[in-house]
Every structure is written in structure tokens, then in C-alpha cells.
């Protein structure tokens, strides 16, 4: 044991000294994290392996590298078109969802009008309806309205989100009322209060809503798969499924396509992951009613 002078920092350090359980916990967490990453890393490995190594048992981790599968997979389908469609659809969905959530969240949080409670209750009830229930009736409706096989049918149903409205409302409720009284004295109307006072403050929930609807839009499959037929307007995941249907046995090429179609989502998530890992979802999702 060293003789030590007890400075405040040293005292703090002893108090926060790593307990033996702490090392074990961190070790276990690393193992769990790697186990969750393993399927994704494995997919990348297969996309860079030689065909000979892929069709071998037991699977080879330290085989040779082969970069030829990416250009081959890229050339096999109109990926650029799929990417463009997905970016266009997701962009529209995000812009519309942010706008509708901002407006409705503001009104439900701060404005007084008759029937507000009922309308908000109706919004919450929409959350109870799972998407699968809507497939059959919306298919019929889409055909009747002439929306079948269009971009619009891939955008409009997702132009509003209960999650978004709820999150915005929760945020606006916490803003001090004086803010809007001051704006009112300045002669601001509702729209100026919303877009010049409230919206600039609402960046954090806006990012969450945007991210949520972007991911939902990028990852969506059943809906565009059933509601569209033309290759030119279909999004990336439907394209990937078609590729699997056509080239189901070329696992080098398939894993290459999986990698380049999934990479954008992963990159965006990594940039914004700090908004998730602290558990905001649970707290702001208002679990405790």
C-alpha cells in the first residue's frame, strides 16, 4: 500500500473505484454486444469471401478475400433507381410527418378548442390498429381511389404519425406559458407562435420523429410490396427481396447487396445513436401515462 495524501480527487477516485463486479459486467456487456453484431459482421465477411470458401463446411472465417461480388451484385438490378425511390419516399414522409406532428402537437398541447379531448383520444386509438389489419381494406381503397401502384400510396398513409404527435405534444406542454403570452403581446398570431416561437425550440423531439419515420420508411416492405407492381417506383427493400427471388443461390452477391442496401441506415443510426442509447424512447414515449 502506498501512503497517500487524501486530496479531493483521490477521495472521489476511491469512492468510485471499480468494483470487481464492474469488470465482470463490462466484460459480459462486450460479449453480448459482439454476439448481437455477429450476424451483421458475418454477412459482410461472406460478401468478401471467395465462392469456394462460402460453400464449405464448417464455415471459414479466415479465408481469402474477393471483392468482385459488389460490382456483380450492383449490376444485376436497378439499385440506383431503388435508392432514388426510397430516398424520395422517405424524404416526403419525413417532411410531411414533421409538419403534421408539429401542427397537431402544438394544437393539442397549447390551444383550447371544443372537442380537443375527443380528437386526441381518437389519435391515440389509431395506435391500437396494427398495420396488418389495414392491408386488406387499404388495398381495396387504394384501387378505388386510383392510388394503386403510385408513389402517393407509398407516402400519404405515413404522412402523419401518432408517435410524432404524442412526442411533440409532450414537449410543448413543458414550455413555459409566458413564452406565448409575450408573443401574443407582440401581436403574434397562431402561425407565428408555432413557426417562430415553438418550432425552433422543438429540435430534439423533431429529430426523434424524423429518425423514427425515416427508419420506418426505409425499412418498409409489406406495404410497397402489395401496393405497387412497377419496378420503377418500388423501394429498396422490395428490390432486395426481388433480387433474392432471382439470385437466391448466389450468397456472395446477396450478402454484398444486403451490405450496400443496409449501410445507409446503419451510418445514419451511428450518427444519431446518442438520441437512443440514453433511453429517451421510454421516457418520452410516456409509458407512465
Amino acid at each position: 500500500m502506498h501512503p497517500r495524501t487524501v486530496t479531493p480527487t483521490a477521495a472521489a477516485r476511491t469512492r468510485r473505484r471499480v468494483r470487481p463486479g464492474g469488470v465482470l459486467r463490462h466484460g459480459l456487456a462486450v460479449v453480448v454486444a459482439l454476439a448481437f453484431l455477429a450476424p451483421l459482421l458475418w454477412s459482410v465477411r461472406v460478401s468478401l469471401a471467395t465462392p469456394g470458401d462460402v460453400y464449405q463446411f464448417p464455415p471459414k472465417i479466415f479465408g481469402a478475400w474477393d471483392f468482385s461480388h459488389y460490382p456483380r451484385a450492383w449490376a444485376a438490378r436497378p439499385w440506383l433507381r431503388y435508392f432514388g425511390n426510397t430516398v424520395f419516399i422517405a424524404g416526403c414522409v419525413v417532411a410531411l410527418t414533421i409538419t403534421t406532428s408539429l401542427m397537431a402537437g402544438f394544437a393539442f398541447a397549447l390551444m383550447k378548442f371544443r372537442g380537443r379531448g375527443i380528437l386526441f383520444g381518437l389519435c391515440m386509438a389509431v395506435m391500437m390498429v396494427p398495420q396488418t389489419v389495414l392491408l386488406v381494406p387499404n388495398f381495396v381503397i387504394a384501387q378505388t381511389l386510383g392510388l394503386y401502384d403510385t408513389y402517393l400510396i407509398q407516402i400519404l398513409p405515413w404522412a402523419a404519425s401518432v408517435f410524432g404527435i404524442f412526442l411533440m405534444r409532450q414537449f410543448f406542454v413543458t414550455l413555459p406559458g409566458e413564452l406565448f403570452e409575450a408573443a401574443e403581446l407582440d401581436g403574434a398570431g397562431v402561425w407565428r407562435m408555432l413557426f417562430s416561437v415553438a418550432a425552433p425550440l422543438a429540435r430534439p423531439p423533431m429529430i426523434l420523429v424524423a429518425l423514427n419515420s425515416f427508419m420506418g420508411s426505409w425499412n418498409s416492405f409489406v406495404w410497397p410490396y402489395l401496393m405497387t407492381r412497377r419496378e420503377e417506383i418500388r423501394p429498396i427493400e422490395v428490390g432486395l427481396q426481388t433480387f433474392y427471388g432471382a439470385e437466391g443461390t448466389d450468397w456472395n452477391g446477396l450478402t454484398a447487396a444486403i451490405t450496400f442496401t443496409t449501410l445507409p441506415v446503419i451510418v445514419i443510426f451511428l450518427f444519431l445513436q446518442r438520441y437512443f442509447v440514453h433511453g429517451v424512447y421510454g421516457v418520452e414515449g410516456g409509458v407512465r401515462g
Binding site: V32, L37, P39, T255, I258, T261, I266
Partner: peptide, 19 residues
Amino acid sequence: ARASVFLAHVTPIVATSLV
């Protein structure tokens, strides 16, 4: 570690089903 576990949730189901 939390981000790694959450990452799986972010991936598209079609893509990772194939994996």
C-alpha cells in the same frame, strides 16, 4: 454496447432475414 444491441433493431427485416 447498448448501441450495438439497438443496431440490430434498426436494420431492415428483409435484409437481416436474408442474413
